[in-house]
């Protein structure tokens, strides 16, 4: 293919995206589009499965049967999200095994929020409310993204995430209606999870490259700072409603802007966690590696058995 042909293909491709048409796996796409999507979708998939770990940490200790079942179902949903997203990434010509290798050897990223520890039961509430809440902010915009399989995965995922968010908020609401000890537990969880949740929206706009390209491809519809602001505006009244205090002395309603003003994120902490120095980076990665390593013989056995079955089938047909 010569340069002129590629250019015209790319023009057609761009016009389709501008016209809100979906790009499907078999369609022609620029190499950069394919690579960017593999990176983003797989990062998203990795976040779903690493995200199972901090919450999974409380399944065995959930305080009631009802809570245990709800938490178990939630963590299972996240596994399902991982599955849809790996499948969506596979449509771009890469295998789940390759993607997992990238996660396990540390070259692929996942959401830094999961490098924080879950220390009390209230953390399960805080994660549902804040982390799933922030994820929804990011993901609702992606329902209209240009790549068909990713967009369709988002529709299903967003529905479940909003259920998770309500469930998390309800856990905290119950704690706030409980004893002093329970209220303190809820407040402590918010104190620890608030700032990491704001960090989920990424660096400030003036330090975030690539935005124009991602906007064109509808991988991004609002900037990091816009999404962060929307999250703060949505979350502060929810905290007040149940008597939780946001741990930010600079937080106040700005009548003129029609938004909350809030304090500066500790960007040094943000960078440290991204670079692997958060409280649980090593534990999370090691847990994923161990699961994969300990499961190798199982996956190999399944393949060996399937191969034997196929041999027997063809033998039977030959007779």
């Amino acid at each position: 293919m010569n340069e002129a042909q590629t250019t015209s293909l790319e023009e057609v491709f761009n016009r389709r995206i501008d016209a809100e048409e979906k790009i499907e796996p078999k369609d022609w796409m620029p190499e950069k589009y394919r690579k960017t999507h593999i990176r983003q979708i797989s990062q998203h998939a990795h976040s779903e499965i690493v995200g199972m770990l901090p919450e999974g940490n409380w399944i065995s200790r959930a305080p009631t049967l009802r809570r245990k079942v709800a938490l178990l179902a939630k963590v299972q949903d996240e596994a399902g999200h991982g599955l849809y997203l790996y499948s969506a990434a596979e449509t771009l010509g890469i295998s789940r095994d390759e993607l997992l290798d990238q996660l396990h050897d540390g070259t692929a990223k996942y959401s830094s929020i999961f490098n924080y520890p879950t220390l009390t039961w209230a953390d399960i509430g805080a994660i549902g409310w804040l982390v799933d809440g922030a994820a929804i902010m990011n993901q609702v915009a992606l329902i209209n993204t240009s790549y068909g399989p990713y967009s369709r995965a988002m529709v299903r995922i967003c529905k479940e995430e909003s259920f998770h968010q309500r469930q998390g908020y309800e856990i905290l609401m119950t704690l706030m209606k409980g004893t002093d000890e329970q209220r303190a537990m809820a407040q402590d969880a918010l104190d620890r999870w608030w700032w990491p949740s704001l960090m989920m929206f990424g660096p400030r706009d003036d330090e975030s490259p690539n935005t124009a390209q991602s906007m064109r491809w509808k991988l991004k519809r609002k900037s990091n700072d816009e999404l962060r602001q929307a999250f703060v505006d949505q979350t502060v009244p929810q905290a007040e409603l149940i008597g939780l205090r946001i741990p930010d002395p600079a937080l106040c309603w700005n009548e003129e802007r029609g938004h909350y003003d809030f304090g500066e994120i500790d960007w040094d902490e943000f960078r440290q966690v991204v670079q692997g120095n958060g409280p649980c980076n090593r534990e999370r990665l090691e847990a994923r590696r161990a699961a994969h390593r300990n499961g190798t013989w199982v996956r190999e056995a399944a393949l060996a058995h399937a191969a034997k079955q196929a041999d027997r089938d063809s033998l039977r047909k030959a007779i």
């Binding site: 199972m52 245990k68 299972q76 300990n294």
Partner: peptide, 24 residues
Amino acid sequence: GKLCGHGPNLETDIALTNISLDLF
């Protein structure tokens, strides 16, 4: 329930979690 997230692959994680949920 304790195994959720630590299985050989996502499919077995989901299936064993289903069984756990049924039993609960």
